[in-house]
Every structure is written in structure tokens, then in C-alpha cells.
Amino acid sequence: MIEVSNLSKNFGNIKAVDDVSFNVNIGEVLGFLGPNGAGKSTTMKIITCFLKPSDGDVKVAGHSIHEDPISVKRKIGYMPENAPLYEDMTVVEFLQFVCEMRNIDLERRPSSIDGVITKCHLENVKNQSIETLSKGFKRRVSMAQALIHDPEVLILDEPTDGLDPNQKHDVRALIKELSNSKCIILSTHILEEVEAVCTRAIIISSGKKLFDGTPSELSEKSADRKVDDVFRAITTSLDVEGVTL
């Protein structure tokens, strides 16, 4: 569903993404791991056609980001880092706007909006203006916005960042529920999350892909099954006790 081939992105002298390739199919939940500044968000911004790569290509459902970005964007639901939203709108107005932008059929709009409001537990705040919502609720609005057109591809940049334990649990349950019929990429710094929801993990550091495999392949590298240790060993190339790469 998503084919990333030899993707590179330079910002001046910084190589934010350096020759990264991978494929993701329907039914897969890909966990995108890496230290701060590794290039996770940059890769996601390229897949969602916000940034143009310096080199390489991405195809989503067969459409290239270079040749047909509009078709690519139609296929994707995207939750950007920090969940930027139009704060002067109410939740319902905001979702209505997304429906208009995505040209969802007029008859289907009310049910689409109600559907995501229920899925993301926004019933109690739906007529509240977004600027008055707490951080966790803003994240859920951003999640709702990404799901509204029932996309085949979901790109979620740190979807559980800043959420309380209950909300984290809810979001993970939601991702699991969606994962059968969709192709999902999510980035995270919480390694238990990878084991809980992802079918596959990629670790990148300084723009380079260093690991691509299942979460259990990752934890098997540590004698005590400590994913944190494996992550540290891979991304710092230091010797970590009990880890054999």
C-alpha cells in the first residue's frame, strides 16, 4: 500500500532522511522508532505530501507523491505532530470543514461526523471551541479529523503523546480495532506501545534505517527481553549489557 523507495531529505547540510526504503501493506501497523531528530516526522511529512523529498519516491496505493499528490492525500488520514487545529472553531465546525475539504457526500456527512465523535469520545465537547479544550482532547480531535473519510492509510505522528494512561489505552485499542482493514504508520517514543499495537517496527537514527522487523525480533536481541536496551544499543552503537545485535 505504501512503497517508500530510496527517500532522502536534506535541510541545508542536515541529512534529515538518508536513503530510506520500506513497504507497508494493509493489515500492518508499522511502529516508527528513533531518537529525537531521527527523521521520523520528516519522513511522515514527505509521505503526506507536505514536504518534497530531495531524492527518492513514495507511492501510496499506486499514486506517486511527485505525479499525483492530490490522489495520495485523498487516500491518507494524517495526524501531524502536536495536533495543529483551527482553534477558533468548535469541534463540529472543524469536522464539518474537513468534510467539505474532502468532498464527502452531503448525505454522508452527519453520519461521518457522528461516527468519529463517538470513536474518539468527543460527545461532551463537540460544541466547545477547540482553544478551550485540554491537550488530550485536542489530540482526539486531530485523530477524529484523520479518520473522518475512513482512509485506507493512517499516518499518526506520536498519537499518544501527552495523553493520560486511560486515553493512551483507548487510542491503542482504537488503533488495534482499525488495523485489520487499514495500513497504519505511527511514530512513538514509548517502546511498550510498539509491542502492544505494532506488527512491525522500524528504527531510524540520523535519517538512516537501522532495524526493520517484528517487535518480538527486536526484544529477542536482549537476554532479558528489554526493548529499551535494544533500542539504546542500536541507536547509540554502545555496548549494552545483555544485548547481542
Partner: peptide, 14 residues
């Protein structure tokens, strides 16, 4: 400044 440009331009709009 607020980053909403990323939300807006990743919708199917040129």
C-alpha cells in the same frame, strides 16, 4: 506559526 499549515496542505488541496 501555529503549524496548521501542515494540517491544511495535507488535505487534498493545492
Amino acid at each position: 506559526k501555529s503549524g496548521t499549515i501542515e494540517f491544511l496542505l495535507t488535505l487534498p488541496v493545492t
